[in-house]
Design a protein around this nucleic acid. Structure first.
Lengths: 206, 206
DNA sequence: ATTCTAACTTGCCATTGACAAGATGCCGTG
DNA sequence: CACGGCATCTTGTCAATGGCAAGTTAGAAT
């Protein structure tokens, strides 16, 4: 971590880690660049050189989150071969990477047009919509073949697939968000288990 | 509005209105007490007297939001007598009162234990869970009677009703949140219409 | 070895949230 | 009507923050 005295060596990563810790502890609203700098053991202006400004740091942070979400979704799809488990994976990501999750869906906090971020975001969306088209218990609509939709970006996917994906995404995202905000009464229960029960109760009408 | 010179007369309401405008324009992250004071035409320390601190103002703002949501849900339930429309009402609330919606589910921004807020929050939850138990196309489970669940708070409602309500709430909330954050590609379409289509595709098994 | 430059520092400024102390005018009581 | 109490609003101040400018250091290239 701390190599010499002047040049940190791995400051960018250290700052992103500090951000994850700080946000998980006190929420996005409470974080400050200067505090992150202190946590990393550098001066208050050091972060600027790597991220430009506060929004720049959060942009990188959100991109990292989208990247890990894409990885998690892809892994889950290959491992369990179940659409329901894909939703559970989404919820698990929100719980274990709550700091990232909290930032990712607040585009007013970062530079939403950053190309790096957009790429990571697209990777996540691809992994999600691919599950809609591919998996056996997925919300696949009648006439559509998985072939036609596979790998398509949400923008290019046929509208039936897209809507089914949006429905599933809404469900998983809403559950995760409401849980994290403390809106549900049973906070003591295991969120993954509860998600599994709730998700399993719903199906698409043909 | 501006009565005399010294005593504003209706500052509390004016500040909440200013907050609604400012948040809708620039997001919660960007607002400052001093800006709200400027918008209301008072000195920078005037808001403190009414709300204590920034979190206090946002507490009142969130409570106002929960109150209006409860009213909207109740009205919708009596008017349309449709569970699907209850979800659409939820989405419409998120769109038209986006500033309130944005604050309500960020408890790290306000005093989440404030009694006034908790009461308004409970009213919203009641209106929502009542729809689960009452309405003809609601997600009512087999053995449960609407009688048993009606009027029950989310904490006291039977677990079947509660889970069905959580599922529906997750769906509507996730849709609204994802739409507002720009995660869906078709932002040009009418969100209510899209919500109606998506919500209509899902049903409870059994 | 010298230069070049990315990485980091110190220093500064406007803005903000919070607090303290004072000014103003409404409202009830005599 | 006079007067005192008190909620309401003001001015003044302080530490902390984000952002910028100018200087310093060390690693890398030639």
């Amino acid at each position: 971590m701390t190599k010499g005295t002047y040049h940190h060596g791995d400051l960018r990563r250290a700052l992103l880690q500090a951000a994850a810790d700080a946000i998980a502890e006190h929420g996005v609203a409470a974080i400050s660049m200067r505090d992150l700098a202190r946590r990393a053991g550098v001066s208050h202006a050091a972060p600027t050189h790597h991220f430009g400004d506060k929004a720049g740091l959060l942009t990188a942070f959100a991109a990292q989150g989208y990247d890990e979400l894409a990885k998690a979704l892809s892994t889950s799809r290959l491992a369990s071969n179940s659409f329901l488990e894909l939703g559970v994976t989404y919820v698990r990501f929100a719980m274990t990477r709550r700091a990232h999750f909290e930032v990712m869906f607040r585009p007013d906090l970062y530079h939403a047009d950053d190309p790096e971020l957009l790429r990571a975001k697209a990777r996540s969306a691809d992994a999600l919509y691919a599950g809609v088209a591919d998996l056996p218990d997925g919300l696949r609509h009648r006439g559509e073949t998985a072939e036609r939709a596979r790998g398509g970006t949400p923008d290019s996917a046929p509208s039936d697939i897209r809507q089914a994906g949006q429905a599933a995404w809404s469900l998983a995202h809403g559950f995760a968000t409401l849980w994290l905000s403390g809106a549900f009464p049973d906070r003591d229960r295991d969120p993954e288990a509860l998600a599994r029960m709730i998700f399993g109760q719903l199906k698409v009408i043909q």
